[in-house]
Simulated assay, not measured.
Amino acid sequence: MSVIESTTRPHGQDRYTISEVAALTGLTAHTLRWYERIGLMPHVDRSHTGQRRFAQRDLDWLAFVGKLRLTGMPVAAMVRYAELVREGDHTRDERRELLETTRRDVLSRIGELQDALAVLDIKISHYGIHPDQCGGPTS
Rank of each mutant, 00 (worst) to 15 (best):
D14E: 15
D14Y: 06
Y16L: 06
S19H: 12
A23L: 06
L24H: 06
L24P: 03
L27D: 06
H30E: 15
H30K: 13
Y35N: 05
Y35I: 10
Y35P: 04
Y35E: 05
E36W: 02
R37D: 11
R37Y: 03
R37V: 00
R37A: 15
I38K: 06
I38A: 09
L40N: 08
L40G: 11
M41Q: 13
M41K: 02
H43M: 10
D45E: 15
H48P: 05
H48Q: 15
Q51E: 14
Q51T: 06
R52F: 09
Q56S: 14
R57C: 09
L59I: 11
D60N: 10
W61T: 03
L62A: 07
L62K: 05
A63G: 15
A63C: 13
A63S: 15
F64Q: 09
F64I: 09
V65A: 11
G66H: 01
G66S: 05
G66R: 01
L68Q: 09
R69M: 06
R69Q: 13
T71G: 02
T71M: 08
G72N: 05
P74N: 12
V75M: 02
V75E: 00
A76N: 01
A76K: 09
A77N: 10
V79N: 01
R80T: 00
Y81F: 15
A82H: 00
A82E: 07
A82L: 02
E83D: 14
V85Y: 08
V85C: 08
E87M: 12
G88Q: 15
D89A: 05
D89W: 03
H90P: 00
T91F: 06
D93G: 11
D93Y: 09
D93N: 12
E97P: 09
L98H: 10
L98I: 12
L98Q: 06
L99Y: 03
L99A: 03
E100Q: 07
T101I: 10
T102F: 01
R104M: 04
R104E: 02
R104W: 07
D105I: 00
S108L: 10
G111K: 02
